[in-house]
Design a protein around this nucleic acid. Structure first.
Lengths: 336, 336
DNA sequence: TGAAATATTGCACACGTGTGCATAGTATAT
DNA sequence: ATATACTATGCACACGTGTGCAATATTTCA
């Protein structure tokens, strides 16, 4: 029951352990007869290779580290699902590590991944990532950031981000197309660059359709339902309220829906509402939410594929990779 | 930039590598002066210990494997959050592996964890787990199952489950207390043992309060919103419809809410609705859902702590551990 | 028959770390 | 001054696997 190694098999088969090693790796160097004999023996004895030892000599661990703020965030969870799935398909294993958005914990996480000798690192939705980029580079393996702009992608550091500006351009353009001209925007947390980008897309759509930008129609939210609820209450008290609201994200939109219900505002009759993200619940609220789909699983997949290319290339510089920007997609449901 | 090992430090410090090893591990055997000299050198040279090599000789990897159906399930994600958090606090690392509910993929996952020499395995919400228990036992390390009853807990195999029967007893009892006596139950997937348990708690509450059990009030669902919607449509067409519905889970209850909205049934005025699980969105639907809280993060924490006890004990049999059953908790919101 | 080519195997070392034991040096006690 | 205890260090080996090279056995070819 104590773990059986190739040496044990070697002894049982009456050969040397390198022969066993070659046999199990299907080397053409070993006699076909002894090869099958060794394989049978390995199966009977319940042999299980030791990845640590193998990794030690080959230098590759076939493991990637994934650093998240918290896996309990459904958005993050879907991204990780995409990562894990393609990692598995390529024979890689995922080490999960959450930072709870605490910088020192994020650094500790990266250090632990370094100790475990991962072949690459993926960091999702961390505002910290960009700031501590030097810490990330120190690890000496490829790093891919998801939804985390950093101006100077370093030697090994690349990003996969959703095109926030274009996404909210789509959303706003759609509202205009179906006849709205007083369209409000409820912002997200002030310090997120994604909020600035989404705001930019909103204004771009207005401009292209010759609708004057009215700053009083932009009210602050916080990215959570409570913020949306508060924002809508402000909006409906205006002398000339909007006929449509574009929200920083779905959570904000959910807060808007609730406030509307309380104020007896019918949706989409009196007010059209559009969100951003397409969280799993967007289609389950009432009415089901029109929103911009972030291809979360695909972003995970792309990040993982990029990591693999970087690790498996002998010279990453020759790969001439570039940062990836994914387009969101408008999905029209019943809130518009 | 090439990785620096203790041998490199040894050479630079003019000592042997065992001395470096001891110095870095703070062994009292090495001279205080040389110890600080070696530590400084290690920092300067950017030394990073190699967990693989260390694990190879110590026999412990300080890594646990977590097998899930899919991390995109918010329920699972919260459990994993609890696992990862306590793992981190104890210096352990988590390898994540999803099975997509495919048996062969689950077995492959376990095999991979075995290859990586994890110190323990936690399996969440897998109906497969119990069936393939022999496969799980083969791994030779402690296995803890979450929400997955298995009759004969094996040598190293324990479970952490929520008390389904008691939870739905609480829910039903509460509905009775606030005056309902025609209470329906919408079931979950037929092959889940949790459905049978929740049903049993429902019937127990009826019995204890001398309310006759009416089989026509039990209608099938599927654990998803569509099932709940369909079930409610059946219920409201009865000659004598129920005044309250207890649902297998929150997703079912959400489907019920939607069907009620369509049919112009006011909640909780015309119909009281109770769910089970307390998924993150239960408090964001309208009206916010009364439900039974499954302490998801705590269950993850308990599973991890149990795994640690099992791995770190020299003789697990002496621990006299028992399976853990956690009690759910009723949270009253606005759907009742 | 002899030489050369080929097939098969073993030897030795490497990866990076930890630890039991022996050794040498130093301080303490008698 | 000698024996003893203690401190500090190095040697050798172990963990499990992979690989270059040498060595042996077998086949092929002339």
């Amino acid at each position: 029951m104590g773990k059986v190694s190739i040496k044990d098999i070697a002894k049982a088969a009456g050969v040397s352990h390198p022969t066993v090693s070659r046999a199990l790796r299907d080397s053409p160097l070993v006699n076909m007869h002894t090869k099958t004999r060794i394989k049978d023996l390995a199966r009977e004895m319940g042999y299980c290779p030791d990845a640590r030892a193998r990794s030690l000599v080959t230098g590759r661990s076939y493991t990637v580290g994934v650093v998240v703020t918290t896996i309990a965030d459904p958005f993050v969870a879907e991204v990780v699902q995409g990562i894990e799935s393609t990692a598995h398909d390529n024979g890689y294993t995922v080490i999960l590590s959450s930072s709870n958005s605490e910088p020192e914990r994020e650094i500790a996480a990266v250090e632990m991944l370094r100790v475990k000798r991962v072949d690459g690192v993926i960091v999702t939705s961390s505002r910290i990532g960009a700031l501590y980029l030097e810490h990330l580079e120190r690890i000496g393996v490829p790093v891919v950031l998801i939804n985390n702009h950093n101006e100077q992608s370093g030697h090994y550091t690349y990003t996969v981000t959703v095109d926030n500006r274009h996404g909210s351009y789509l959303a706003t353009k759609y509202l205009i197309q179906i006849g709205h001209c007083r369209i409000a925007y409820i912002t997200g947390p002030a310090d997120h660059s994604s909020d600035a980008d989404r705001m930019a897309g909103y204004r771009q759509a207005l401009r292209k359709n010759s609708i004057p930008y009215d700053p009083t129609l932009v009210v602050p939210g916080d990215g959570r339902p409570t913020g949306g609820t508060r924002a809508l209450r402000t909006l409906i008290e205006m002398r000339q309220p909007p006929s449509a609201v574009f929200c920083y994200n779905d959570m904000t939109a959910i807060g808007v829906l609730r406030a509307a219900q309380e104020a007896n505002i019918s949706i989409p009759g009196d007010l059209a509402v559009v969100g951003f993200d397409d969280i799993p619940f967007a289609s389950f609220v009432y009415p089901p939410l029109t929103t911009i789909i972030q291809p979360k699983q695909e972003m995970g997949r792309l990040a993982m594929e990029m990591t693999l290319k970087l690790t498996e290339a002998e010279d990453p510089a020759k790969l001439s990779l570039t940062d990836i920007m994914v387009e969101g997609e408008l999905v029209v449901r019943e809130s518009t």
